[in-house]
Amino acid sequence: MSGKNDEKVRTIPFVRQGKKLTVGEIPEITAYEAGFLTVTNASWRTETPVCDRNRCNGCLNCYLYCPEGCVYRDGNTGKIDIDYDFCKGCGICAKLCRKGAITMEKHGK
């Protein structure tokens, strides 16, 4: 697992794209898509959460608990997707998913 997924939802400038932001591009608030202004932290991960979309019912419990805010909703299916550039692999989402839809896959197997 690596790299960006679903570029179409990324319409705003990101630090990961190497864009330098002006003051005017800084939001007034601290609610934005994951990684708008931070460097990626994917390298922290030793396990990767993978979502079984057949099980996911889009309840977004994982979003509420994700400490990196890197869970988002797929506009087409209403189910969740994960921004792996910013997922640190903590596994909280997998632990509390009531549908058992998320499993942690160990790296280097």
């Binding site: 601290t30 609610a31 990196e68």
Partner: peptide, 15 residues
């Protein structure tokens, strides 16, 4: 705010 229609990261880190 937390928004279920358009989930966003809240109170994030910034370098």
């Amino acid at each position: 705010r937390f928004d279920f229609d358009s989930p966003k990261s809240m109170a994030f880190s910034v370098g």
